[in-house]
Design a protein around this nucleic acid. Sequence first.
DNA 1: ATAATTGCAAATGCTTTGCTTGTGA
DNA 2: TCACAAGCAAAGCATTTGCAATTAT
Lengths: 136, 136
Amino acid sequence: MNNSIEIKCQKQGVRLTDQRKLIAKVMSESEDHPDVDELHKRVNKLDSKISIATVYRTVKLFEEAGILSKHDFKGTKARYEQATHEHHDHLIDINTGEIIEFVNEDIEKLQKKVSEKLGYKLVDHRLELYGSKIKK
Amino acid sequence: MNNSIEIKCQKQGVRLTDQRKLIAKVMSESEDHPDVDELHKRVNKLDSKISIATVYRTVKLFEEAGILSKHDFKGTKARYEQATHEHHDHLIDINTGEIIEFVNEDIEKLQKKVSEKLGYKLVDHRLELYGSKIKK
DNA sequence: ATAATTGCAAATGCTTTGCTTGTGA
DNA sequence: TCACAAGCAAAGCATTTGCAATTAT
């Protein structure tokens, strides 16, 4: 769990620079889904010279290497999370912006079924629920 | 079906300018999901003086009035469609970009169920399937 | 050694906006 | 009439890129 990102980089022949190591570290330790700006801020606390351009480049590189996942939720900037966990979808709290991950096998199966019925092989999907907390 | 957009505008007190009428007309007659640039091109064939700024403003206005729906599919610009039909989701052909609409009540129900289980009232959702055509 | 990576600033692509002129109800 | 809308060009925002300097292997 800890800094598996560095290990993945080595496996994929991704050159490990100081900047990439820091970005990997910060993302490994992040429990949330930071956007590039936020990630840049966190990384800057460890090394104030890292440029936002490098963060953009690295995040893209990591995404292409299957190390990070990018999400474009409605009305927000692109957010990133570690791609280690098993597949899941997201519920976004429309009031706080909080993001909750969930898995639902029934929905997954139905998506596949719908695709096939339409004559398609399901390659990817995006499912986002937007909701507001029910007060008790 | 024909130009219901104009009627909706009147009902909502949206002032009907020539430009808006044309944009309404073009969207009414569109079977696909054009982006702003494409819409601007189509509208320009009818009136070459309409600016892209007006198209952007109108499309936003219509969206807020519930007349058009905006979609930000992965890797593309924002696309619009008439919001008249009943709710539906989309399957995007990853090879051709073609967009197929579908409805699946079971998935809808499960989404609601998932939200509630997490303590949320489902307000909105986004479901997109990305697939490639199965050749026979 | 040397091909890849960084930082910077400039460029990009889509979208919005300020301002002046034009116009629908 | 007159508040609202259009056209234009400039600004905004997130992201990408060219280039010279730096660095990992």
